[in-house]
Computed example of a mutant assay.
Amino acid sequence: MGMFDSLLVEHNGRTLEVQTKRFENMLYSYRVGDWICGAPPGVVAYFDILRLDADGQRVYGPQATSVPAYTLLVVLAHGVFVDSEIRDGEMDPEAISQALMQRREAWQDSARLLGFLVEQLRLKQQRLRNYDRVLGAAQMAIKHVQDSRAGQRPERERRFFGSLHPEIKRLDDGEDPLTVIASILAPPESDRPFLNDPPQDPLADYRL
């Protein structure tokens, strides 16, 4: 197929990778909220027909006729991937045209688009803060190992840091440094609630 880009869309709890040659074809992957390199200006909508097996994997070729069909609808607004929807069945051309028009019109609402962009900016800033904290914890663990091996970390100070940071205590207990550092870097953000901001209450401004 050569070079392409991928749109990552959610369907029945799974993430599907939908390949496209419509943009810059640099093997980039985009999720909702991402700015797409090479996307056209304005609000545009696209579709694709997907054939998915029972495991949610795409099926191509002659075998595709034996698995269910789905219609993917995608919207980009000023280069930002703002929306996607997967509908059951292969929609006919008239229905696809109507659905694309409706979604374009919906995202031409400036208030809706601005609200979406602001929320995506907040989420991306939160992710960046999380990444900074994770990298900081990894750097602290590496420095702790280096100082300990060089005899530059007194026992009292080691106990103090271990009481504040479980990863440091694991290192002092003799756990392999690579295993500890990998555990700091590997878990997804959802498994590290202490790195995330407190959950936002969407009704906070309206509570007495």
Score class of each variant (00 low, 15 high):
residue 66 S to G: 14
residue 26 M to N: 14
residue 75 V to L: 10
residue 74 V to E: 07
residue 103 R to E: 07
residue 21 K to Q: 11
residue 106 A to Q: 12
residue 71 T to Q: 03
residue 42 G to C: 15
residue 90 E to M: 01
residue 101 M to G: 10
residue 6 S to Y: 05
residue 63 Q to L: 15
residue 96 I to L: 04
residue 81 F to V: 02
residue 95 A to S: 15
residue 14 R to N: 15
residue 16 L to T: 05
residue 65 T to N: 15
residue 61 G to L: 02
residue 34 D to P: 01
residue 99 A to W: 01
residue 42 G to E: 11
residue 76 L to S: 05
residue 102 Q to D: 12
residue 99 A to Q: 08
residue 53 D to V: 12
residue 62 P to A: 09
residue 51 R to G: 02
residue 63 Q to R: 11
residue 41 P to C: 11
residue 21 K to N: 12
residue 113 L to K: 08
residue 110 S to N: 07
residue 28 Y to V: 01
residue 37 C to I: 10
residue 97 S to L: 14
residue 90 E to K: 11
residue 97 S to R: 14
residue 9 V to W: 00
residue 68 P to E: 04
residue 104 R to N: 00
residue 62 P to G: 08
residue 103 R to T: 04
residue 96 I to S: 01
residue 69 A to F: 13
residue 48 D to H: 05
residue 99 A to P: 09
residue 31 R to L: 07
residue 56 G to M: 09
residue 10 E to C: 14
residue 42 G to P: 13
residue 106 A to R: 06
residue 99 A to T: 10
residue 67 V to Q: 14
residue 72 L to E: 08
residue 25 N to T: 14
residue 60 Y to I: 12
residue 36 I to L: 06
residue 5 D to A: 06
residue 44 V to A: 10
residue 96 I to M: 02
residue 24 E to V: 01
residue 111 A to M: 02
residue 109 D to F: 06
residue 75 V to K: 03
residue 21 K to A: 02
residue 70 Y to V: 05
residue 89 G to D: 00
residue 98 Q to Y: 11
residue 11 H to V: 07
residue 20 T to W: 00
residue 20 T to R: 07
residue 69 A to K: 12
residue 11 H to I: 04
residue 74 V to S: 09
residue 18 V to Y: 04
residue 62 P to I: 12
residue 47 F to T: 10
residue 59 V to E: 06
residue 104 R to V: 13
residue 56 G to R: 10
residue 26 M to P: 02
residue 40 P to F: 00
residue 27 L to T: 00
residue 78 H to R: 13
residue 36 I to D: 06
residue 80 V to R: 08
residue 57 Q to F: 11
residue 69 A to M: 15
residue 77 A to E: 04
residue 66 S to L: 15
residue 14 R to G: 03
residue 92 D to Q: 12
residue 103 R to G: 06
residue 66 S to Y: 08
residue 48 D to C: 01
residue 89 G to H: 10
residue 26 M to H: 10
residue 96 I to T: 07
residue 62 P to L: 11
residue 31 R to C: 03
residue 64 A to R: 12
residue 68 P to I: 02
residue 60 Y to L: 14
residue 33 G to S: 03
residue 107 W to N: 05
residue 110 S to F: 00
residue 31 R to A: 05
residue 66 S to I: 05
residue 10 E to P: 02
residue 57 Q to H: 12
residue 72 L to M: 11
residue 84 S to E: 01
residue 62 P to M: 09
residue 11 H to A: 01
residue 107 W to D: 02
residue 98 Q to F: 11
residue 93 P to R: 09
residue 56 G to H: 01
residue 54 A to M: 11
residue 34 D to Y: 00
residue 55 D to R: 09
residue 4 F to V: 13
residue 74 V to L: 11
residue 93 P to K: 00
residue 51 R to L: 01
residue 93 P to V: 07
residue 18 V to T: 01
residue 81 F to I: 07
residue 47 F to E: 08
residue 57 Q to K: 13
residue 35 W to T: 06
residue 10 E to V: 13
residue 69 A to V: 04
residue 58 R to S: 14
residue 13 G to F: 08
residue 104 R to Q: 10
residue 38 G to F: 07
residue 37 C to R: 14
residue 69 A to G: 11
residue 96 I to Y: 09
residue 63 Q to I: 07
residue 89 G to M: 06
residue 101 M to R: 12
residue 10 E to S: 13
residue 89 G to V: 05
residue 21 K to T: 03
residue 51 R to M: 06
residue 114 L to Q: 13
